[in-house]
Design a protein around this nucleic acid. Structure first.
Lengths: 230, 230
DNA sequence: TAATCGAATTTTGAATACAAAATACACTTT
DNA sequence: AAAGTGTATTTTGTATTCAAAATTCGATTA
């Protein structure tokens, strides 16, 4: 281990930012369902902390759009409405298009190779109809493109939005036909990356996301009509 | 007053979200300078609140990028580096381009008229070389375009970034030549809006922002070289 | 039986308390 | 005088406390 590595500042975390991550995990992974009340006392007990740092974390998550705070009434997991979706997707589209352009400028051969590798694994999961694994690898590819773009602000903004719609995106894994189409779009994404064609990548990413949007939107509408209780 | 207006829920605010706004104001307006330590105790006294809600507010502002929190060492106003700027501007460009496209689809004649009105006032301020007023109206026009786009997520993301660079943007109000150019770019923005030409608006907004970027960047670099103290 | 009321309980927002860490500063020791 | 050391003070992170608001729930009334 080099001096530089050994002598880097000791990472210290506060309870509060540990909790931001943990509670975000509960929300994003769906352990806490949309609309559900966030049980402050219970979480304090489970995490073994007092209310102060937990409440700080909830406020941050609320400003991120994952949690809804109502004065004197506590926190609930934010519900995703069709209107939310219609707002979020175009913004993600613009961000992903930008990511595509930047990535084509900055990406290294190694990074391309890594993405290709993940892509191959993802196709294998598709062929085996292993949806959760497919979904995971799919997300990973988009993360890697973002990373290759080399813009921290872009990554932060994108992933904040991505988290908000993550569960809906997963739940809405629609028809087999759509799944097949998604895989073929991914093929195009990879080849645009390989040829470092920024414009092409931007446009296929946008298209890909737009298709996803329609599928998620359809699912969400069916949900809203199905479960009338708010 | 209609029933709908009269019967809307009574607005209740918590100290915490009042403080988010107030402290954000101090940071954005420059009452607290970049890099400066945020005096927790003093702010508590000035606002007449305890540390709990203030600290909650600081955490939200930190997640927004306006404040930097260092464990056991408290909060400072975030410094804007050239790297930050280089990350933030392209993202704002993408968002503003999207706003332009959406605005052209959705804007009403009344909204166009309002923007034209603000624009005329802005030009008057330019001619009178009233920089602060010009700056204010300039910002207002961009806000109105965002509003016309009718996408809350877009507005939120954009304004979060805009606030981060607001002061630098103001300070960097560069040469008279650039100022003149900026006004003429605004003329083009207005006419693209009038003709509801989304693509044209997107591209002129992007160009406008890019020019601004270079001028802010130049100023920021001169700052960094001038005041060596961190 | 369904709606209404009201006290008991719980939850929430905010202030305060307290221990650990950081900082300031007087005092050595070269 | 400069650098180091140890102690007092302040600041910070977190827990606890407290009052106000919301919720629960049994009793009461229509």
């Amino acid at each position: 281990m080099s001096f530089a590595e050994q002598a880097r500042p000791i990472e210290r975390r506060t309870l509060y930012d540990e909790l931001v991550e943990r509670v975000r995990g509960l929300v994003v992974e769906g352990a806490l369902q949309p609309g559900e009340k966030i049980p402050e006392r219970e979480l304090c007990e489970r995490f073994g902390v007092s209310r102060t740092p937990l409440r700080e974390a909830l406020k941050v998550l609320a400003s991120d759009g994952l949690v809804q705070l109502t004065p004197n009434r506590g926190a609930t997991v934010a519900r995703l409405t069709v209107e939310d979706l219609e707002d979020v997707f175009p913004v993600m589209g613009a961000l992903e298009a930008l990511a595509g352009e930047l990535a084509c400028h900055n990406i290294t051969d190694e990074q391309i190779a890594e993405i290709q590798d993940v892509h191959r694994k993802m196709v294998a999961c598709y062929e085996a109809r292993m949806l959760p694994e497919y979904f995971q690898l799919n997300q990973r590819i988009h993360e890697l493109i973002l990373e290759a773009a080399g813009n921290r602000t872009l990554s932060a903004q994108y992933s904040s939005l991505a988290q908000r719609i993550r569960r809906a995106r997963f739940m809405a894994n629609a028809s087999d036909a759509r799944w097949k189409q998604a895989v073929s779009e991914h093929e195009e994404i990879i080849s645009a990356l390989e040829s470092r064609n920024g414009e092409a990548l931007a446009s296929i990413l946008k298209l890909h996301l737009n298709n996803k949007f329609h599928s998620v939107r359809k699912w969400l509408i069916s949900q809203e009509n199905g479960t009338r209780k708010g």
